[in-house]
């Protein structure tokens, strides 16, 4: 695949940037995420995460089942902080 192909659409992270992150020592989705922001956009990795998992598995030789998704945290959907904080206008 061309290094310029975009894998994470939300943060516009390319295949090449993900390869570089793995070369830099990333062996997990979280490792790639922290180095590149892949999976940190509006969709929270719903689009790119599986691709990132596959790239990590093929580059590092890990079994696909061993490359786990990034750590999920609440909230799992984008919600306005004002709704939770009590003042929805802020």
């Amino acid at each position: 695949m061309d290094r310029n192909v975009i894998i994470c659409r939300c943060q516009e992270v390319t295949y090449g940037e993900i390869l570089d992150a793995i070369a830099d020592g990333a062996t997990t989705v979280d490792g790639v995420k922290k180095r590149t922001r892949a999976g940190m956009g509006l969709c929270q990795g719903k689009t790119c995460q599986r691709r990132v998992q596959q790239i990590i598995a093929s580059q590092t030789g890990q079994k696909p089942e061993d490359v786990l998704p990034a750590t999920y945290r609440v909230p799992v959907r984008p919600i306005r902080m004002g709704v939770i904080g009590g003042n929805k206008d802020e």
Partner: peptide, 20 residues
């Protein structure tokens, strides 16, 4: 109604419109 989390194994956090 968005369920944004599950807490303590038995409680949902819900945002329904402007209500939490």
């Amino acid at each position: 109604s968005v369920v944004y989390g599950i807490f303590d194994g038995n409680t949902l956090g819900v945002v329904e419109g402007d209500n939490h």
